[in-house]
């Protein structure tokens, strides 16, 4: 973990509610895809944890959805704004454990960390296929980023307006894969967990206090004991998951 100042270089909407922000700073602590950063915003007490969408040569990119006061405020920040950011938080996906034919499954704002993961997997010669799920056509974002790096992308929409009609699980049958890495809302993770026999790594979300393991605000129960989503997670291996809610 590192606390440092980042300078916003770009901040623009991708859809009505989803924004892309690029910022320059010290990215040396960002060591794995699936990690997150925790951003301090003026006038708000707690930091905002956001997953890493991309990270290269001192440029950190995040994609965030406007869901409340903090993310709303982020949309108003002009290029040149300096932000206090904690980087290198969370365990991230373990590339070693990923099989030869990985499938990355993202739902809504769970899609962004899978882009950085796809890049890392390509570098490790484990080129993934992608499934991304949204509710409607106007919520879709990010597909072109995956296509630019040569990944095959299947889109699902709940209303059937684009791609496969239904949920991400409806796209599984047509794809040849031996391992899953996923990030998305908990109902999606749960459906996926049940729909596939494949092993995998699942990224979880929880309301956090500190984001670095001190407050126990985001603890969950797993097969291997209590874990802090922010520090021991957010990625859990499929075998460790205990569904409670």
């Amino acid at each position: 973990m590192k606390q440092s100042i980042f300078t916003i270089k770009e901040n623009r909407p991708l859809t009505d509610l989803v924004w892309l922000m690029r910022m320059a700073g010290d990215t040396s602590e960002i060591t794995a895809a699936g990690q997150f950063v925790n951003i301090q915003l003026d006038g708000l007490y707690l930091r905002r944890p956001i997953s890493v969408f991309d990270c290269e040569d001192g440029m950190l990119s995040i994609i965030y959805k406007v869901v409340g006061k903090g993310t709303e405020k982020m949309t108003t920040l002009p290029v040149g704004t300096e932000l206090d950011v904690l980087t290198g938080l969370g365990n991230g996906y373990d590339l070693e454990k990923v099989g030869k034919k990985p499938l990355l499954v993202g739902g809504g704002v769970g899609v962004p960390p899978l882009y950085y993961l796809a890049k890392k997997l390509i570098a490790a010669e484990k080129k993934p296929e992608i499934v991304v799920g949204f509710n409607t056509a106007d919520e879709i974002f990010g597909v072109e980023f995956f296509e630019e790096i040569g990944c095959k992308v299947t889109v699902t929409t709940v209303d059937g307006s684009v791609g496969v009609k239904g949920f991400v699980t409806n796209a599984l049958e047509a794809i040849d894969y031996d391992y899953i890495c996923t990030c998305g809302p908990e109902p999606m993770l749960k459906a996926l967990y049940r729909a596939t026999e494949a092993k995998g790594q699942y990224s979880f979300e929880e309301r956090m206090g500190c984001g670095f393991g001190a407050c126990m605000g985001c603890s969950c129960k797993t097969v291997t004991g209590y874990k802090r989503i922010c520090k021991d997670g957010p990625i859990l291996e499929k075998e460790e998951i205990l569904w409670e809610k």
Partner: peptide, 22 residues
């Protein structure tokens, strides 16, 4: 283990926690 999640809420210049002595 403590209380169920969510355990944290933000407030103006502060926060509420209900970790429950994990």
């Amino acid at each position: 283990f403590g209380n169920p999640t969510p355990r944290i809420a933000e407030c103006t210049e502060g926060m509420i926690n209900a970790v429950g002595l994990q």
